[in-house]
Simulated scan of single mutants.
Amino acid sequence: MPSVLSWMAAPLRLLARPTVRAGTSAMALPRIPMATYATVSPVRVGNLTPAQPKKNRKRLGRGDGSGRGGTSTRGHKGQKARSGNGKPKPGFEGGQTPLTRLIPKRGFVNSHAQTLVPLNVDRLQYWIDQGRLNPAEPITIRELYQSRCIHRVADGVKLLGDGASHLTTPIQIVVSRASQSAIKAVEAAGGSIVCRYYNATSLRALLQPHKWLLKNKPLPHFADPVSKRDLLWYSSPNNRGYLALRDAQERAAANAADSAGAPRR
Rank of each mutant, 00 (worst) to 15 (best):
M1I: 09
S6T: 08
W7F: 14
L14M: 14
L15G: 07
R17Q: 12
T19R: 07
T24R: 13
S25W: 04
A26K: 08
M27A: 15
A28Y: 05
I32S: 11
I32D: 04
P33Q: 09
A35N: 07
A35K: 08
V40Y: 06
V40R: 13
V40C: 06
S41M: 11
V43L: 15
V43I: 14
V45W: 09
V45T: 10
P50I: 03
A51F: 08
Q52L: 12
P53R: 07
K55S: 10
R57M: 08
K58C: 07
L60W: 11
G61M: 04
G63A: 02
G65Y: 05
G65S: 13
G67A: 02
G67L: 01
R68V: 09
G69W: 02
S72E: 04
S72I: 01
R74W: 07
G75Q: 02
H76P: 03
K77F: 11
Q79E: 12
Q79M: 12
R82M: 15
R82F: 14
G84F: 05
G84P: 00
K87W: 01
P88E: 05
P90G: 07
Q96T: 08
R101E: 11
I103T: 10
I103W: 10
K105H: 05
A113H: 10
A113M: 09
A113K: 12
Q114D: 08
T115Y: 09
L116E: 04
V117W: 03
P118K: 03
L119F: 03
R123E: 14
Y126F: 10
I128R: 01
P135G: 01
P138A: 14
I139F: 01
T140C: 05
I141D: 02
I141P: 03
E143K: 00
E143H: 00
Y145Q: 10
R148L: 10
V153G: 03
A154F: 05
A154K: 10
K158W: 07
L159Y: 01
D162F: 11
G163F: 01
G163M: 00
L167T: 00
Q172E: 13
V174N: 09
V175I: 01
S179C: 03
Q180K: 07
I183A: 02
I183K: 00
K184V: 10
V186C: 01
G190N: 00
G191V: 00
S192H: 09
R196M: 10
Y198F: 15
N199A: 06
N199L: 03
T201R: 02
S202E: 08
R204C: 03
L206A: 13
K211T: 06
W212M: 00
L213Q: 13
K215M: 03
K217Q: 15
K217A: 08
P218V: 07
H221R: 14
F222G: 10
V226H: 12
K228P: 06
D230H: 14
L231K: 15
L231M: 14
S236M: 06
P237V: 04
N239W: 07
A253C: 05
A253F: 04
N255A: 15
A257S: 13
D258T: 12
G261C: 01
G261E: 00
R264T: 06
